[in-house]
Amino acid sequence: MRETLVVFRRELKSFFLSPIAYVFGILLVSVLLWYSTEPALQNGLPASAIALFGTLPFMLILFLPGLTMRTWAEERKLGTLELLMTFPVTIKQLVLGKFFAALAYLACVLVLTLGLPLTLGAYGKLDWPPVFGSYVASLLFSGAFLAVGMFWSSLTRDQIVAMLLSLVSLFALYQIGNPANVEYTVYWLPSWAIDLISAVSPHRYFLSIARGVLDTRDIVYFACFCGFFLYMNALVLHARRMKG
């Protein structure tokens, strides 16, 4: 626990010491806010928090790979990973420390979007519980995508490769569960495979985000999703100890 916390603190600090954190944060927040207020500015439609969260998964797919690509790839390239792995910490502690640091950073970025619901609440009637639910769901989504991005980063020492692999796999994983695409696969996939795909893809949990209604199943799903990729991440790091 103590060791995880030490890793967590250093990682979080390094996020805020690097320019990428600010560029990333400002871009993500601006794009999110733009998409949720643009209809109001252009066509006089009501601005909505739903619109904010509706675009979030897609924005995360676009932006998160740029954030997670460094996680292990940079440490490996610099050689700091070797030193890190000779400190008296377990691989699990390293993975969890880095994961929660990235999640905490994303939470900070999400806090920056609070301006929108606060403004809406000030000038109109906003139903707060779903907004709160949406924020929690957004964090769950972020965590799941972070875990995937970190996993790819552990496989290569080239950050660009890690970014592209994360981008493509996140996009595929997400779109494969999109009902429109599932329909398309009906012609050539057995039904159990379709069920499996839609169960694994985070897409079906997209509505929970937009509606802000959280289910225990959603939480279990995201916990398993993160757990799986973080575990794979730890396995890859462990394999490094065999290969060097």
């Binding site: 250093r10 010491l17 610099l78 050689g79 070797e82 030193l83």
Partner: peptide
């Protein structure tokens, strides 16, 4: 101290 002294440059 590993070969080539890896350090976190930004710290």
């Amino acid at each position: 101290l590993p070969e080539s002294t890896p350090l976190y440059a930004e710290m």
